[in-house]
């Protein structure tokens, strides 16, 4: 995990560390699921993981598996080299089908404004970094609904 891999996909990318309240999110990601939370009192979903609802304040919150579908809300195409990342890298905020937004990368796309119109339909994927899997998004191609 600490030794540099020759030809490895992304040995130096930043690897986040979970806290107790975010552990279910990262566990789900490692299993290939995008799990987020919903308040069972007011029924509204939210992101990032918390132990109370940011809308109504209730502590009755439950995890559920999101569809993984999203649309491109806003982004930059970064030319600043980050460890392990290609240059340029698309740093985006996407809007999940369920409503909440999250930061992510758009992958498997030409990193140009022309290929990245706002509201572009996207689907989640998971990028393995050691034992951690990080959710990223790619455009849904024509046949893939």
């Amino acid at each position: 995990m600490t030794s540099p891999q020759s030809g490895g996909s992304a040995p130096d990318k930043f690897v986040p560390k979970a806290t107790p309240e975010t552990q279910p999110y990262w566990d789900a990601a490692a299993a290939g699921r995008l799990d987020i939370q919903r308040c069972t009192a007011c029924e509204r979903p939210f992101f990032y993981p918390r132990t109370s609802c940011p809308h109504c304040g209730s502590e009755k919150v439950a995890w559920f598996t999101a569809s993984g579908r999203a649309t491109l809300y806003s982004y930059v195409i970064s030319e600043r080299p980050a460890p392990g990342f290609p240059t340029p890298t698309v740093i985006a905020t996407v809007e999940l089908e369920e409503g909440p937004r999250m930061m992510t990368n758009i992958v498997d796309v030409d990193p140009t404004p022309e290929a990245l119109p706002l509201d572009l339909p996207l689907q989640v994927r998971f990028e393995q970094r050691g034992e951690v899997a990080v959710p990223v998004f790619a455009p849904i191609d024509g046949g893939d609904r």
Binding site: K13, F14, V15, P16, K17, A18, T19, T22, W26, Y48, S78, A82, G84, F85, T89, I91, M102, M103, T104, N105, R129, V134, V136
Partner: peptide, 8 residues
Amino acid sequence: QFEMPYGV
């Protein structure tokens, strides 16, 4: 956890 993993 939710922004730094993305090459910021």
